[in-house]
Design a protein around this nucleic acid. Structure first.
Lengths: 179, 179
DNA sequence: TAATTGTCTATACACACTGTATAACGAAAT
DNA sequence: ATTTCGTTATACAGTGTGTATAGACAATTA
């Protein structure tokens, strides 16, 4: 069922494709079954995101970064998220969009995004002599977002190049806030 | 009618609020009249965007920047767009979202966004000894986007502070590409 | 084994939005 | 005085939503 949802979200059709009706058809079940398994469409959206994140190893990040050098950790974080956004470039912008258009979806998805913010905050927290840590975290959050990735993923630019552009911006931001 | 559209988009309700049905009710006309004046919902969306942009003076930008010093021009561009995104912070993310979810809306809205990219390209074009102008333009495009602004507009951060954070990132990017 | 529980299907209902169509109305231009 | 244009009122078929009910089926429990 989650698979059916991913398939519909990955397909080019956008909103109309991702209806409970279409999902039920795709999954080969009744609409009633969908409502049975998921409280709301938004909950289903969250479940799909988690499945993708799980598969992408995003749940293992906190442990990985717990005792690493902050600069190396940041470099790895950029690499991991860039790869993740790149791999799911067709789906992620739609998640973001749903979050902007639906209050409940926003809550569920921003909860997921906050995991990334927490991770970045932990990394920044380990850095020495940072001017405005809260501001830096927000800037890093914006630079490592799915939205920023998407904005750079144009003109057929390679995933490698996009990651490099993001990393440069991230490195500059840290440099600037350090002093 | 465009006013009715703006009102519905500004209101917190999101997608469902912005239906042809609701729009007609809000504007005090029949649905038939809406279909009469606008070919599609997407065309209406474009018209609303243009009305906002017009009002915000975004159509006058090319002339303003035509013969200015590139660095000052860039600083002004950041100020203008930051102010614009900030003023319409409730509406802009929804435009972006519609663009991600609907093929036709994407075409109409990315056409508008390309105006900004063109402006930035003109400014970068006037700079001397820039390494990869195309990449720089894309980075500046991402940094001056409604999406990037929204990502920094959290924790009650002031418009002034957001603009400053964006400007720092922009200045760093230019610096890095200059050499 | 028999009963219970949970999940599924099939089906129905009332509601909302879409896109199109048609007939009739009124105001403005010719 | 008549034509033209944009409007209203209304209807229709199609699609999606959310809820509800009754029956089929399988797994768990007594």
């Amino acid at each position: 069922m989650i698979e059916a949802g991913r398939k519909l979200l990955t397909g080019g059709k956008g909103v109309p494709a991702f209806s409970i009706d279409a999902l039920a058809r795709e999954a080969g079940v009744t609409r009633a079954t969908v409502y049975n398994q998921f409280e709301t469409k938004q909950a289903l959206l969250g479940a799909i995101f988690d499945a993708i994140a799980q598969e992408g190893g995003l749940f293992d990040l906190p442990q990985i970064f717990s005792e690493s050098d902050p600069d190396k950790a940041l470099r790895r974080a950029v690499a991991i998220f860039a790869k993740f956004w790149g791999t799911h470039a067709q789906v992620m912008p739609k998640f973001v969009a749903f979050g902007q258009l639906d209050e409940e979806a926003r809550a569920i998805l921003s909860e997921r995004a906050e995991r990334r913010r927490k991770l970045l905050a932990a990394i920044v927290g380990q850095m020495k002599s940072v001017k405005s840590p809260a501001d830096l975290v927000d800037v890093l959050f914006a630079l490592t977002s799915a939205e920023f990735y998407r904005l750079l993923a144009v003109h057929g630019r390679s995933a490698r190049t996009i990651e490099e552009l993001i990393w440069q911006a991230v490195a500059d931001a840290v440099e600037r806030f350090r002093t």
